[in-house]
Amino acid sequence: MKGKVCCLGLVCALAVLGSVSVAGAYDVREVEGGGTISGRVSFEGTVPPSKQFQVKKDQEVCGTERSVHEVSVSDGWLKGAVVVLEGVTSGKQFVSAHSRGEEPGEGVFHYGEGTHLSLEILTKGCNFGPFTGVLAADEPVRFLNHDRVKHILHTVSSKDDKGLILRTVHNREIRPDTVVEETFTAGVLKMSHVVGVHCNRHDFMQSWLYVVTSPYYAISDREGGFTIDQVPPGQYELIAWHPALGLKRQTVTVSQGDRAEVTFAFSGK
């Protein structure tokens, strides 16, 4: 009898552990007298060449050759760096946005508006979307496959700070014209801030997402520019991250109604 009770207890304990979420909630409220952070992200040095891939499967949809531009630089300005204001627990609502992958890919990241990020990844032309984006923990991400071939979704989170170990989070099939929803729980992500989205059938399909907890983020444009508005006054840690170049951090102070100018500088080898 004692043994049975122990077994039952073990099972219950595991079930409870499994359901625990450690994510902090973000509250949407009106921001009065918010400030703005804007700036540019630069790159110095030799730009790494794009990675070339011979397409082995589904050439009728994916083409015969594909390339991945991990580092995209124009006139010394870095595109695709994710800039995140850390530690904001309440403020403006999430804003709807679209972000499209580079040619010939037609994949799109769609971010919803309101109280949640509501990320949708619309896969098309054997492309998930742009090389970088953002993701929120503990809310479902919708993966839509608009291709007429199946993709094997393989998502990973970085297990260590150096990004040397990538832990598989999801490993599942997305059939043509279907939708699957997957949640990256805070429990599974643990301390990881980086998620990779790959296709196991098509190795050139790669995107990297930074885990955000609020709408206070931006992704640098072709000129390296970014803007984060409606920031409640205060002092924050601002980070700029790029999957191939790492993470830069600086402290920024936002005053009521003011604009804080910031620059980040990345360098190549």
């Binding site: 297990k159 260590d160 170990i165 990538l166 832990r167 598989t168 196991n200």
Partner: peptide
């Protein structure tokens, strides 16, 4: 992972996809 990193590679864990 430290050893593999010297070759410019990353270690992936938990991927059971069978090509």
């Amino acid at each position: 992972a430290e050893r593999i990193a010297k070759k410019g590679q990353r270690l992936t864990t938990g991927n059971f996809y069978t090509p």
